[in-house]
């Protein structure tokens, strides 16, 4: 598996990472290097081996349906670049 320049640009856009044109070719090389490194795992025979979901045997923990959190809008908004009337204010996004 490998990526081309167009794919690099597309995934950068999907992740909202701004790329200059001259950064594309080096990134393409780096990503393909990482991918071929990971692909070495393909040499291991995993036929009949269950996919591992956790390193130690563990069960998903469930919470009770009780309200234990919230009620601090100031803290939630504290790091927002802009807040207005208790809302986050962001550049207008509308269909």
């Amino acid at each position: 598996m490998s990526v081309d320049a167009a794919t690099v640009k597309r995934i950068a856009h999907l992740a909202r990472i701004k790329l200059e044109e001259h950064e594309v070719a080096p990134l393409e090389r780096e990503l393909n290097g990482i991918l071929s490194w990971i692909e070495q795992l393909g040499e291991v025979d995993t036929d009949g081996v269950e996919p591992m979901t956790a390193v130690i045997p563990n069960k998903l923990r469930w919470r009770e349906d009780v309200v234990t959190d919230g009620g601090y809008p100031e803290a939630v908004l504290a790091n927002a670049p802009q807040g207005e009337f208790g809302f986050f204010a962001v550049p207008k996004v509308i269909e």
Binding site: V76, Q82, E84, F85, G86, F87, F88, A89, V90, P91, K92, V93, I94
Partner: peptide, 10 residues
């Protein structure tokens, strides 16, 4: 609510 901003409630 505003001509230039969208307001987000989480």
């Amino acid at each position: 609510q505003s001509p230039s901003k969208s307001h987000v409630d989480l």
